[in-house]
């Protein structure tokens, strides 16, 4: 039962938002916020209450869950602040116009910026968000498909996880490996994901319309 529920709740977001542009009610239901809330409500009842957990205990789980993501939220917020500074100072536009003269496919450019920041910084989240701040004006000027841009930057932000990434250490510690073996398995796996991801984006670009 939970298997099916999970598949339904996770596939719900894109099924609904694809078929929902017509009716405004469908649009409301298809809004990610509502989809998430509905999924949570369903999961609370069917996974939580139906399995005999008290509401209080479930809410304790939820409290813990929010504690786990508190720092991520703040990092995202901080990236938002930096992005706004780049926009308000007009530098985003300047960068955008310079990068456009490079005549490089914006999707590759986004991937590259994300990958460079990721390798320097370690955090995929920070790398992705910073790259997004830089690429936003370029997006406005070229008609790149924004959905593909998200994926391209997302792929770049996974590039070569090494000693400055917490995921690297988690893998090393749990699997009890040396740093060298972790690089050969974990880091290489992340690199493959990043490169195949970019290739996938470029192939998809051939078939889907630009924005």
């Amino acid at each position: 039962m939970p298997v099916f529920l999970l598949i339904i709740t996770t596939s719900l977001p894109f099924i609904v938002s694809i078929t929902g542009p017509a009716a405004s009610f469908l649009k409301f239901i298809g809004d990610p916020v509502i989809v998430m809330l509905l999924s949570l409500f369903t999961a609370t009842i069917s996974l939580g209450v139906a399995n005999g957990h008290s509401i209080k205990k479930i809410m304790d789980f939820y409290g813990d869950a929010v504690k786990d993501v508190a720092l991520i939220l703040l990092i995202v917020a901080g990236a938002g602040a930096l992005k706004q500074i780049f926009i308000d100072s007009g530098v985003s536009l300047a960068i955008g116009s310079i990068l456009q003269e490079w005549k490089l496919n914006p999707l590759i450019l986004g991937w590259l910026i994300a990958a460079v920041i990721r390798v320097c910084l370690g955090s995929a989240t920070v790398a992705g968000l910073t790259a997004a701040g830089i690429m936003a004006p370029v997006m406005a000027a070229t008609n790149t498909n924004p959905n593909l841009m998200v994926l391209s930057i997302g792929a770049g932000s996974l590039m070569f996880s090494h000693v400055n990434d917490s995921g690297f250490w988690m893998f090393k510690e749990y699997f009890n490996l040396t740093v060298k073996d972790t690089i050969k398995s974990w880091s290489l796996m992340e690199t493959i994901v990043a490169i195949v991801g970019l290739l996938g984006v470029l192939l998809l670009q051939l078939v889907v319309p630009s924005s």
């Binding site: 977001p13 894109f14 609904v16 938002s17 694809i18 924004p146 998200v150 930057i153 932000s157």
Partner: peptide, 16 residues
């Protein structure tokens, strides 16, 4: 978190 934030920044469609 990261892809969601990117979707917001680029005004992309979450479902697509």
């Amino acid at each position: 978190p990261s892809p969601s934030a990117l979707v917001t920044q680029f005004h992309a469609n979450l479902g697509l």
